[in-house]
């Protein structure tokens, strides 16, 4: 059963209902969409005892103010947005009970402090039972470009009312709630404290690039430019990436995390709202278990690429899986099921 749970009091544009995306629709030219920081959503869902793919709110512009319409439970993951519930601070990566009438407020990440070692851009709000909007082609994710999914196929607006899928919220053993070890701490990667490191598997056009390009790609830091959004992330480096041989490319399917290099030599990383197909040469692809690291990179932050292979990528996926399994055990210990309560 679905009940009105949250009212949007204030939000800038570009915040939306997202889940883990819309797989299996590529034959219609429909890409994944879904939460860019999919791991943050999975953490929030694990803490609340939701299904892994239950929909939440992706918040990437602030300030955001929401009123709770009914007693329930929420989790805040992703970027630390100095969240306040009726003025009282809520720690990041935290699940807690909320009561009807309370107001939740989130500020821009880094408004109070900017931490190079833990860049932050997008927050995720999960609710017990998941945000309840109609499924379209198997997913609740908002497809902004095609104007379907999510809440009426669009970004959130002040005045919107969001329903939650759970009629009865779980009860917390500790009314203050409980938290998760953040992924940046639980799954550390890279040695440069000034830059975020992601692992990349070389793609089919890798060998076409010059030796100098290969060298620069793996050893230079890359700066995230302001031309970055849910479609993709443009990078700037000191060495433009060039190909040895230039041939006409054939259009082919592309995925989130693909590092494409247009003629100018500055790479673009494709994200969740990007095209399903492309024809630019590909240097490599950021592995799925590291996509959440990209999701939290604000403009001007630095990125490093670490070479990896399929076996290492699978090990990373297993490591992430076991991190989430640990959070589900923590949740089972920290929540009482509605029947018991």
């Amino acid at each position: 059963m679905s009940v009105p749970f949250l009212e949007v009091l204030a939000t800038p544009p570009l915040n939306s209902v997202q889940d883990l995306g819309r797989p299996g629709q590529r034959r219609w030219g429909i890409g994944p969409t879904g939460m860019v920081d999919g791991l943050a959503l999975q953490v929030g869902n694990a803490l609340l005892g939701n299904a892994p793919g239950a929909a939440g709110l992706e918040l990437q512009l602030f300030p955001v103010r929401l009123r709770v319409l009914r007693d329930g439970a929420i989790a805040l993951t992703g970027a630390d947005c100095d969240a306040r519930l009726d003025g009282r601070p809520v720690p990041p990566w935290w699940a807690l009970p909320v009561r009807a009438g309370q107001v939740l407020e989130l500020s821009p990440p880094g408004a109070t402090r900017r931490d190079l070692a833990a860049p932050a851009l997008r927050a995720c709000l999960s609710v017990a039972g998941g945000i309840d909007v109609p499924e379209v082609l198997g997913s609740r994710a908002t497809h902004v470009r095609c104007a379907f999914g999510g809440l009426e196929g669009r970004a959130l607006r002040p005045g919107d009312v969001l329903a939650a899928g759970a009629a009865q919220a779980p009860a917390f053993r500790d009314p203050a709630g409980f938290g998760a070890l953040p992924p940046a701490t639980a799954l550390p990667l890279g040695e440069d404290p000034q830059a975020t490191t992601v692992r990349v598997i070389p793609a089919s056009d890798y060998d076409d690039f010059t030796e100098a390009s290969h060298e620069a790609f793996w050893s230079d830091p890359w700066r995230v430019t302001i031309q970055s959004d849910r479609m993709g992330m443009r990078l700037e480096g000191t060495t433009p990436l060039k190909r040895e041989v230039v041939q006409e490319m054939r259009s082919h399917g592309i995925v989130c995390g693909v590092v494409q290099v247009p003629p100018g030599g500055h790479p673009i990383i494709q994200l969740n709202d990007g095209n399903t197909a492309g024809g630019y040469p590909k240097m490599g692809v950021v592995i799925d278990p590291d996509l959440w690291r990209l999701a939290q990179l604000p403009p001007r932050s630095l990125l490093r690429f670490q070479r990896c292979d399929l076996a290492q990528a699978r090990a990373a996926a297993l490591e992430q899986d076991s991190y989430l399994a640990g959070l589900r055990r923590l949740s089972a210990l920290s929540l009482m099921t509605p029947e018991v309560a």
């Binding site: 598997i201 399929l310 990528a313 699978r314």
Partner: peptide, 14 residues
């Protein structure tokens, strides 16, 4: 066809 990984969860057959 040439089969190469397209990241950690896809193959491209060319």
């Amino acid at each position: 066809p040439r089969v190469t990984p397209m990241g950690s969860a896809a193959f491209l057959l060319e």
